[in-house]
Simulated scan of single mutants.
Amino acid sequence: MNNDLLKLENQICFKIYTAEREITKLYRDLLKELDVTYPQYLVLLLLWEKHSLTVKELGQRLFLDSGTLTPMLKRMESNGLVERKRSAEDERSVIISLTKKGEALKEKAECIPSQLVDNISMQKEELTQLNKTLTSMLDLLQKHSDKR
Score class of each variant (00 low, 15 high):
residue 147 K to M: 10
residue 80 G to E: 03
residue 142 Q to C: 09
residue 11 Q to A: 08
residue 104 A to H: 07
residue 57 E to A: 12
residue 50 K to M: 08
residue 39 P to W: 06
residue 38 Y to A: 04
residue 110 E to M: 11
residue 66 S to I: 08
residue 146 D to T: 09
residue 58 L to S: 02
residue 63 F to N: 14
residue 38 Y to T: 05
residue 33 E to I: 11
residue 31 L to T: 06
residue 127 L to K: 04
residue 134 L to T: 12
residue 119 N to Y: 07
residue 146 D to C: 08
residue 62 L to E: 02
residue 81 L to T: 04
residue 95 I to D: 02
residue 55 V to H: 03
residue 61 R to V: 00
residue 49 E to H: 14
residue 73 L to W: 04
residue 28 R to M: 06
residue 64 L to A: 13
residue 146 D to F: 10
residue 7 K to S: 06
residue 31 L to N: 04
residue 27 Y to S: 05
residue 43 V to I: 15
residue 79 N to D: 14
residue 110 E to L: 13
residue 111 C to I: 14
residue 144 H to G: 06
residue 44 L to Q: 02
residue 131 N to Y: 12
residue 28 R to F: 08
residue 13 C to K: 12
residue 128 T to G: 00
residue 80 G to L: 06
residue 87 S to M: 11
residue 10 N to V: 05
residue 136 S to L: 14
residue 37 T to A: 07
residue 109 A to P: 02
residue 12 I to F: 11
residue 68 T to H: 10
residue 7 K to E: 11
residue 66 S to L: 04
residue 10 N to A: 00
residue 135 T to R: 14
residue 106 K to E: 11
residue 19 A to H: 08
residue 131 N to A: 12
residue 121 S to H: 09
residue 1 M to E: 05
residue 69 L to P: 02
residue 121 S to P: 00
residue 46 L to Q: 11
residue 122 M to W: 12
residue 78 S to G: 01
residue 55 V to E: 12
residue 113 P to V: 09
residue 2 N to C: 00
residue 35 D to T: 09
residue 102 G to W: 03
residue 27 Y to M: 14
residue 141 L to F: 11
residue 99 T to N: 05
residue 21 R to W: 09
residue 71 P to K: 14
residue 73 L to A: 06
residue 40 Q to Y: 03
residue 118 D to T: 13
residue 17 Y to H: 15
residue 134 L to F: 15
residue 75 R to Q: 14
residue 127 L to N: 06
residue 68 T to A: 09
residue 10 N to S: 03
residue 106 K to R: 11
residue 35 D to C: 04
residue 100 K to M: 05
residue 145 S to I: 08
residue 89 E to L: 14
residue 83 E to F: 13
residue 99 T to R: 05
residue 128 T to N: 06
residue 114 S to F: 08
residue 63 F to H: 13
residue 64 L to F: 04
residue 147 K to L: 13
residue 2 N to H: 06
residue 134 L to K: 08
residue 138 L to F: 13
residue 148 R to H: 13
residue 61 R to T: 03
residue 8 L to P: 00
residue 44 L to W: 01
residue 1 M to W: 02
residue 6 L to H: 12
residue 24 T to L: 10
residue 65 D to C: 06
residue 53 L to N: 02
residue 85 K to Q: 15
residue 52 S to V: 04
residue 51 H to D: 13
